[in-house]
Write a protein that binds this DNA or RNA. Structure first.
Lengths: 160, 160
DNA sequence: AGTGAAAAAAAGTGAGA
DNA sequence: TCTCACTTTTTTTCACT
């Protein structure tokens, strides 16, 4: 699923452009050009190059989960029993295919997976646990943390 | 920081539009209109309304952390000693102001905060822990998980 | 509210420095 | 590889249903 080994050299212009686009990718290229001292076409070419190289992976609208009726964010630590490559791959595939799972990381340490889940209510979460964890006999243990408040949320990568 | 009390009624058109914008917000309104059976101006007015109402919180480019020299994602569970309102607020403020902290949630359960951190290398993370955790005598304990693989990452909220 | 056509703005293309 | 001038596409506005 990580399809971007693309390592491309970025200069200061590129980094400045990325900093802007990570905050608002609807900024006109002309405005970006003014900010970084480049013409609009130059900005455009750089954006295109970075997109093709996989540096820019997507352009998305960030939506308030509550507005869509999914006000609850939940973190789950998952420990699995058998860590054979096949079992791990199966788990990855299932987690990736579940829409309620917003983020999924395979981690080192006492647990194996960390999930960020967005659901409409606790009943929906319980149904999900039944399917994903209790219904999977390779899951040894899982621990749930319910978010009471989202202090900061984004995917922004610090520049410089 | 949660500034969207705005609860607006969304119909099926709105939800379909949001589903598209969450995947690619550069999709032409004309294309969106074709997909949902609406004219481009109608799509535009709905997008504008949702943006003003805070349903759409931002429009951002998703950047590959590795391309910016921050290839390591780390999860941290933080337990604090004193849970007085002031102490909690101080912690929130500091976490929110740290650029390397991409996501921060205040949660129920055995820990108090969950952080998602993006750094260039382990040395940078150690420096950060010194400042944020060891340098803060209200932090009782913290536990680190290093992401070995990003199976799924996004902020997309399931529609329907 | 929605549509369709016209105006305005932006993105995309190519020649030349 | 940038900039400048030009073309094409998209967004935005407006009169009307």
């Amino acid at each position: 699923m990580d399809r971007s080994p693309a390592r491309i050299a970025l200069d200061d212009f590129d980094r400045k452009i990325l900093a802007i686009l990570q905050k608002d990718n609807l900024t006109p290229q002309r405005t970006i050009g003014d900010a970084v001292n480049l013409s609009a076409p130059a900005v455009q070419r750089r954006i295109k190059k970075m997109t093709e190289a996989g540096v820019i992976q997507a352009n998305v609208a960030v939506v308030d989960p509550a507005a869509l009726g999914h006000p609850i964010t939940i973190f789950v630590e998952v420990e699995i029993i058998s860590e054979t490559a096949d079992q791990i791959e199966d788990a990855k595939r299932e987690f990736a295919a579940t829409p309620e799972i917003q983020q999924c990381y395979y981690v080192t340490g006492e647990v194996d997976f960390l999930l960020v889940i967005v659901v409409a209510n606790m009943a929906a979460y319980e149904a999900l646990t039944k399917r994903l964890f209790f219904g999977n006999n390779n899951v040894k243990r899982f621990r749930t943390f319910v978010a009471m408040e989202r202090i900061k949320a984004g995917l922004e990568v610090p520049v410089r």
